[in-house]
Design a protein around this nucleic acid. Structure first.
Length: 464
RNA sequence: GGUCCCUUCGUCUAUCGGUUAGGACAGCUGGUUUUCAUCCUGCAAAGGGGGGUUCGAUUCCCCCAGGGACCGCCA
């Protein structure tokens, strides 16, 4: 048994979406579990739609998630000559033929089939074309001579044995009339030349697999194993498409989802290992297997992504969390300056307890990160004359104490509550607004301590 | 329409013929609490329908229904 080799083969015609990421993840995990290799192939043969920026985005996305490919990226467009050579061989050994039917002709047949409500397959007209019937002025396409009789069986590693009548497979085109090879041919040749042992891909490729197996057979190549994983559906139950919202990795990183959390979520979407929910990267490699992949499609559930992220926020060490936050804020929010760093680090323990995302942490920490406190009218109204009096008195008392800690602040607050015969809210809320510009956020004592005496007094002064 | 796949709480899933059908997320209670949360109690919530096989089916087989994928000179 040769060493396991898997690949992920996206086309750079759009940003990589979450379904593709999961396919990549499964391929990567499988190969790593088997101590094999994982490769990245860029299928950029659609010159019209392939964009370099998408290629870059794909590689960046995989890297962000911690998926690294072995070896160089395999660029499909550089192998076109190899593909064409195989087409010629297929032509030579009688497994393919030139087809002179025009697009108009084919379209017409399709239309007629639709009207009669019959399934359309190419009528194989050019299979046995006479030499003198060949139109001189037409450039032919090359079609693969599919089997007409018998049944093909795919021993799928996820779905089990899948049978199909060969007659339902049409003589698919392997070379266009402009001389370029098509997907099924190129992918097969590449997989063979890359020595892939396991092809793990979306369920939507199943028919392609039957076509591709025929090419392997015609060339006398040994077959890789195939596994078709169920697709991810939207909440409406439809295949995830590039047009769907929130389906690229960037959409998730933008709201402060961390790569490990998304990786863990994606792992458990359509795959299970008893009741285990949380997998470190190493554990996921250790535990991953094809048997655990479910057969039915699964729906994307944002609240689970969020709660997974929350779990990681609360459980990874704070050094690591801080680094994630630093990077996140720099890219999407406001950069955390070095002088703020100390304060943020010291406050992370309470900041993170109120957060599901890095964005939540940022929002909770805004009063530290931003230099200016922004107020809104509504909240400002809550600081009435009476409140100002309390704030002013609080200010005076803070001025007198040396050590600002929970006990000393609590003492002052409690005194004020007693003196004004009121409750915590009417003392705490105006103070909170004065200091942070918000009714919500971390605990008041935490806010004051994190700000420090000097900054606290400075902010209070602006209100009173 | 043809071919293929799928079907357990709202969602992700466990169960590999015998269970009070388990867990997680979301939901709803109650408690702690300094706003908002966290945290801790608890509750509710599922085998699409019909036939078989079997002493016994969520589990095996068949049919039906529902959902999905594919049906490009895109990949």
């Amino acid at each position: 048994m040769s060493k396991v080799a898997t690949r992920f083969a996206p086309s750079p015609t759009g940003p990589l979406h979450i379904g593709g990421v999961r396919t990549a993840l499964f391929n990567w995990l499988y190969s790593k579990n088997k101590k094999g290799t994982f490769h990245l192939r860029i299928e950029d043969t659609d010159k019209e739609r392939s964009k370099d920026e998408h290629k870059i985005q794909i590689i960046k996305s995989l890297k962000w998630l911690g998926i690294n490919h072995d070896g160089e990226e395999y660029i499909q467009s550089t192998k076109i000559n190899d593909h064409i050579n195989i087409v010629n061989e297929l032509l030579k050994n009688g497994h393919a033929y030139k087809c002179y039917c025009t697009t108009e002709e084919i379209e017409d047949q399709k239309k007629r089939a639709r009207q009669k409500k019959l399934p359309y397959t190419y009528n194989r007209k050019c299979r046995e074309i006479n030499v003198n019937e060949i139109p001189k002025d037409l450039k032919p396409v090359v079609r693969f001579k599919s089997k007409v009789e018998g049944t093909s069986i795919l021993n799928d590693l996820v779905q089990g044995d899948v049978k199909i009548e060969n007659i339902t497979l049409e003589d698919f085109i392997i070379l266009r009339n402009d001389g370029t090879p098509t997907y099924n041919l190129s992918a097969t040749v590449d997989d063979h030349q890359m020595h892939m042992t396991h092809i793990i891909r979306g369920d939507d490729h199943k028919i392609n697999t039957f076509k591709q197996i025929q090419i392997y057979l015609a060339m006398g190549w040994s077959l890789p194993a195939f596994a078709h994983i169920p697709l991810i559906h939207t909440i409406e139950g439809k295949k995830l498409s590039k047009r769907d919202n929130a389906s690229t990795l960037d959409d998730y990183s933008k709201i402060g989802i961390m790569p490990d959390a998304l990786r863990n979520y994606l792992l458990r979407l359509g795959w299970s290992y008893k009741d285990k929910e949380i997998f470190t990267l190493d554990e996921s490699i250790q535990c991953f297997n094809l048997e655990g992949i479910g057969k039915s499609p699964s729906k994307l559930d944002m609240s689970r992504i969020l709660s997974m992220n929350e779990h990681y926020i609360k459980n990874i060490n704070e050094e690591e969390l801080y680094n994630h936050l630093l990077e996140y804020c720099e890219i999407y929010k406001n950069k955390i300056t070095t002088e703020k760093e100390k304060k943020i680090r010291a406050s992370l323990t309470f900041l993170k307890n109120k957060a599901k995302t890095l964005e939540d942490i940022f929002n909770n920490a805004k009063y530290i990160i931003l230099n200016v406190v922004k107020f809104n009218e509504e909240d400002l109204k809550l600081i009435d004359d009476n409140a100002k009096k309390i704030i002013s008195e609080f200010n005076d008392k803070v001025l007198l104490i040396d050590v600002l800690n929970k006990e000393s602040i609590e003492l002052i607050i409690n005194d004020l509550i007693k003196k004004y015969e009121t409750n915590f809210k009417s003392v705490g809320q105006p103070l909170r607004i004065a200091l942070t510009g918000s009714k919500f956020g971390p605990g008041l004592y935490d806010i004051i301590i994190s700000l420090g005496k000097e900054e606290t007094l400075a902010r209070l002064k602006k209100i009173i």
